[in-house]
């Protein structure tokens, strides 16, 4: 990664972190759907980034959100596990070759359908993990599943709309 790319990722992380703690944490649709946007950085980091660095970024993002949300350890653990699942999930939808091993997961590089599958899987897995850790009780399994489904769908739509902002507009004649 170039210095500019590193700077862009840090800036994106800060913006998404603030958006998460100041806005998204306070939005709960129908008492079950909460948008989770800060994991976008983990999802978008290049595939060839070292795993140790990926774990560090994921853990740090999670701890920062936990610090602001009084959920110490919940997001940190879920983010670290999400970092570990990133490559297996991605390569479940795209072939593992020289080209894909060095790419950044975006709509333009993966194509719309594989990217949507990758994004939806990552978001759903994260929501399931975070709500399971947070409730930590099999008696609440119905709540966990409902909140995971609602939050996954809501977060997926928001992250996809963030992605659409980064797609360059087609040139008109």
């Amino acid at each position: 990664m170039t210095g500019k790319e590193v700077f862009n990722y840090i800036a994106l992380s800060i913006v998404l972190l603030l958006a998460q703690v100041l806005i998204c944490n306070h939005i709960v649709l129908f008492n079950l759907a909460m948008p989770i946007v800060f994991i976008y950085v983990i999802i978008r980091l290049p595939v060839n980034l070292g795993m140790s660095m990926l774990y560090t970024v994921a853990f740090t993002s999670g701890v920062l959100v936990d610090l602001f949300s009084d959920t110490m350890g919940v997001n940190a653990l879920a983010c670290t596990l999400l970092g570990a699942l990133k490559r297996p999930v991605l390569f479940a939808y795209v072939p593992r070759d020289d080209k894909t091993k060095t790419m950044t997961p975006t709509i333009s590089q993966l194509g719309l359908a594989p990217y949507c599958k990758y994004l939806l899987t990552m978001v759903t897995v994260y929501c399931l993990m975070v709500f399971s850790i947070e409730f930590f009780n099999f008696a609440d399994i119905k709540d966990v599943l409902l909140m995971s489904a609602g939050s996954s769908a809501f977060s997926f739509l928001i992250l996809l709309s963030i992605d659409s902002l980064s797609i360059p507009a087609k040139k008109t004649m």
Binding site: G50, M51, S52, Y55, T56, F59, T71, M72, G73, L77
Partner: peptide
């Protein structure tokens, strides 16, 4: 990489339990 992963997972669990 596995050591780093295990370290972060354990640290998260410690934070989770202590909180």
């Amino acid at each position: 990489t596995w050591f780093v992963f295990t370290f972060y997972v354990l640290l998260s669990c410690v934070l989770l339990v202590s909180s």
